[in-house]
């Protein structure tokens, strides 16, 4: 591995945590502070009365904003910009949504099963107009199980770096180089967990297939929506969202 010495591993931990802090979109203190700020019954009804396409468009925009932060996270990760551009794109196309799903556990409140969305907290019912109750339920369940691990900000940083830098993504041109970076990040994550006596977390992280399955469900639902409302997707969805998913 290129990061062999302890000092280098510690530098990598610092780099990943700093990259994450600079690109986490919303600070944890702010998300915790907002927990009492719940959507009223009327506001929830107003979301539920929106048309399916309007709600899809809103969610596509919110998701795209989150993904832009993940792109910035990737760019700051030591070694990422040294990969060839094909591989940078392969890793982001496959991993950006997965990173957003992991990051979402910070915006989820397990006490009342709500998530921070457009300035307030709301439950699954807020997203009813999307017409994908099963997908939304699965995403909330995922956040619920991840939030039970009580991951620290640094643990989320290192975990999401490894979600992104995955040498098994199909289509990589310089697989060896990605493998080396992944190996360094694994060392960094393990080192940090040892240092903080949190090695137990490793066995409790969700299997990779769970994130993959959520992303596939999202793509399937988008396909159905795009079939029914091709003009909405074409005219109103963010270009980056279309580039990644449609």
């Amino acid at each position: 591995a290129p990061y062999a010495s302890l000092t280098e591993i510690e530098h990598l931990v610092q780099n990943v945590c700093k990259s994450y802090r600079e690109t986490c979109q919303l600070r944890l203190e702010e998300l915790l502070r907002q927990r009492a700020n719940l959507f009223s019954r009327e506001e929830v009804s107003s979301y539920q009365r929106k048309s399916e396409w309007e709600m899809w468009e809103r969610c596509a925009h919110r998701l795209t904003e989150a993904i832009q932060h993940v792109v910035e996270f990737a760019k700051r990760l030591s070694g990422f910009m040294e990969l060839c551009q094909n591989d940078q794109i392969i890793l982001l196309k496959a991993g950006a949504m997965e990173v957003v799903l992991v990051r979402m556990c910070r915006a989820y409140n397990a006490d009342n099963h709500t998530v921070f969305f457009e300035g307030k907290y709301g439950g699954v019912e807020l997203f009813r107009a999307l017409g994908c109750g099963e997908l939304i339920g699965s995403i909330f369940d995922f956040s619920h199980s991840l939030s039970a691990l009580r991951l620290s900000e640094d643990e989320i940083a290192l975990y999401t770096a490894l979600v992104l830098i995955n040498a098994n993504r199909p289509g990589l041109q310089e697989k060896r180089k990605v493998e080396q970076l992944q190996c360094s990040l694994e060392l960094a994550f393990h080192h940090h967990l040892c240092k903080t006596h949190r090695q137990g977390v490793l066995a409790q992280l969700p299997p990779k297939g769970r994130l993959r399955s959520l992303c596939s469900q999202h793509l399937e639902k988008l396909q159905v929506f795009q079939h029914l409302h091709p003009i909405v997707v074409q005219a109103a969805f963010p270009p980056l969202y279309k580039e990644l998913f449609s």
């Binding site: 832009q68 792109v71 910035e72 760019k75 700051r76 910009m81 551009q85 940078q88 794109i89 982001l92 196309k93 270009p239 980056l240 580039e243 990644l244």
Partner: peptide, 16 residues
């Protein structure tokens, strides 16, 4: 490359 125009652009921009 054209297929990923926006991603290319985001990756080429400096850290902002």
């Amino acid at each position: 490359q054209e297929k990923h125009r926006i991603l290319h652009k985001l990756l080429q921009n400096g850290n902002s």
